[in-house]
Amino acid sequence: MDDVLRMTRAQPVHLVVLALIGLVVLAGMYSSDRFATPLNFANVQDQMVALALVALAQTVVILSGGIDLSYAGALGLLTVVFASIAGEDPASFAAAIAVVLSLGVFIGAVNGGIVTFVGIHPLIVTLGTSTILSGLALLITRQPTGSVPLFFEDLVYGRIGMIPYGTIFTLFLYLLAGFLLWKTRLGLRIYAIGDNEQAASISGVPVKSTKLIVYALSGFLAAVTAIYICGRFGVGDPRAGVGFDLKSITPVIVGGTLLAGGRGGVLGTLLAVIVLALLANVLNFMNVSSFYQWIAEGLIIIAAVSIFVGRKSK
């Protein structure tokens, strides 16, 4: 039992998030007949996959004591590059995937390299690279551009009952990340340096290479997200990533992962992504201005962290 709790990194705050999911679902059922339908549930899932993927990347980076704000620019450039290469035939599609995944890893490795070897705070480094990548994307095109093969769009929009393939893919990656954090040396190293970098270093943990891998992984997941976004919208958009820098942090924090690193896990992030997506959907049904959604999100962030802090200080 102990091991199960530790493996899933379950925390009391997750019960609060679950309760919140219940409340939002009730509110949704009360506000509209169309809420509790397979079509709507599939719709909610489609809305949340991209956020779930970048939030997963952000969770791993934050656990290691860092932060990655480069998604805003990276997603824009990566979608533009992908849609420009992908075309209609399988060969160029495969090439586009290979190029974009490598580019994502490269962007992450550059971030990680500057953070570890130059010693600049990741907030500054990734803000800088994000801005550079945005500029590059806009140099390539000002308008959404390119195309993706139809079979890929069909795949992204396809679903089994009310479960889109995207959801299954996302859940698979979350499981994989959870496995990585629990069953590999890399996972333990991530928690160790996130909690206490100096102690980890004294204990023989290779701090620099671990950080480098973490940022590279983050870049890889950003590339995966970019490919998914292209499948959803059929084009590459230099502004596709706008807002994802901060939006990717919200579910990590609401899900109980400590911003300072070392504590938390991917389960909380997933639950938080679900609650945020449901909330947006329900407020939509209630015909509430989307600005109220911002207000609600803000309140949830502060409330979630307050509960966490309150519990710790006792």
Partner: peptide, 24 residues
């Protein structure tokens, strides 16, 4: 010591016993 890790994980940090697949 690292608070976020268990007693066992601390003691064998970076010297964990591995399975044949390289997993902990």
């Amino acid at each position: 010591t690292i608070g976020a890790l268990s007693v066992a994980e601390n003691i064998f940090l970076d010297a964990e016993p591995l399975t044949r697949f390289g997993l902990i």
